[in-house]
Computed example of a mutant assay.
Amino acid sequence: MHGGPGSGKPRSVTPRGERGTGRHSVTVSRPEKVLFAEDGITKADLAAYYRTVAPRMLPQLRGRPLMLERHPDGTGGRGFLQKEIPEHFPDRVHRAELPKEGGTVTYVLCQDTATLVLLADQACVTLHRWLSRADRPDHPDRLVFDLDPPDDDFSRVREAARWLHGLLDELELPSLAMTTGSRGLHVLVPLDRRAPFDDVRAFASDVAAVLAGRHPGRLTTEARKKARAGRLYLDVQRNGYGQTAVAPYAVRARPGAPVAAPLTWDDVEDPDLGARRWTLADAERLRKENPWSPAPRPRSLTAAAARLRRLGP
């Protein structure tokens, strides 16, 4: 997969079998452009990866506003984050205009493989998604806990994930785990979209406080790094309107092109698991396997919040 095509001619990448989207040809400009210098990974490689994993990734993206992390000069250069959809994007790309303080932002919605490949052509290495969908932007259908370790000892992340999984089971909430491709893990809870963001974040904060109270020497909810004292940080701040989290299957702008990969809870038990275990080179495996199947039924937080109150601080 690594390396450019050699001829320097643009590749035409055409998605196949996309329902309801028609057939669109996306020409990858400068396919030989190296985006990961240490690994020789080109823009064509990035586009091929996203095309391969599209059947798994698109259900995690459809209907969600996206923030684009672009690296036109390669991941070794200075990238940037982009919320507003580029003006030159074709009309067929879906959009969502949503309010922000003082105005609106028009976000990209990635509904099909053609758009996913188009984003790769724009050197969008990483997609960051909202936890809500554009039709009800104030009501998330995902709650996320970001397990942020103080160092590269991933055993501490696995430990915290197991504890959190156990607490969520006590609350009768299903949960999903995912490597971030960076340092930690994300633990996600599917929601029924009844609760607004403020209520969801308050609930997540309460869960984190109970868990940190059970393991005060190992976990913390302290946002200030100086106050964490070497403990793993249970970050719930992504649970807010307009906030984003890295999308499942997204490539990270790090050496080796690691991927945010969905996991089973059995995977979390593996002592060899690391945050960057899967990479762009694992595209076929990521497409073949589906650790999040069957998808758990989205839940209300009402009963879970009552159970959490009974647990006490």
Rank of each mutant, 00 (worst) to 15 (best):
L301T: 07
D152C: 00
E32N: 08
L147S: 09
E284A: 15
G76L: 03
R277S: 05
L116F: 03
R224T: 02
R252M: 07
D199Q: 15
E32I: 00
R78N: 04
F203D: 05
G79E: 00
D121V: 00
L147Y: 05
V13D: 07
A212L: 00
L164H: 04
T52W: 05
A209E: 15
D266K: 01
F154Q: 06
D45S: 06
E170Q: 11
G312W: 06
Q111A: 15
T180E: 04
Q82G: 10
R228C: 09
G77A: 01
R287D: 04
P190D: 03
D112P: 02
A295V: 07
R92E: 13
P291H: 05
K226M: 05
T264R: 13
C124F: 01
L81G: 11
Y50T: 11
L263H: 00
A96T: 06
D45Y: 01
S12P: 09
R224H: 05
T104D: 08
L61T: 06
V189K: 09
V187L: 03
R51K: 14
A209P: 01
P298A: 10
A114G: 10
Q122A: 14
E32A: 10
E284H: 15
L81H: 14
L185W: 03
G184A: 11
P255Q: 04
L131H: 07
P190C: 05
S205Y: 00
A212I: 06
G8Q: 06
D146K: 09
L232D: 02
A202G: 06
R16Y: 05
V210C: 09
V34N: 08
H139N: 11
A304G: 03
T180A: 11
R238D: 03
P294F: 06
P140E: 11
V28F: 01
P216V: 06
G22F: 10
T126G: 04
L116M: 07
Y249V: 12
D267E: 09
S205G: 13
E87R: 14
P15L: 03
Q60W: 06
M178Q: 08
L232Y: 01
D282A: 09
Y233V: 00
T126V: 05
H128K: 12
Q122K: 10
S300K: 02
R276E: 14
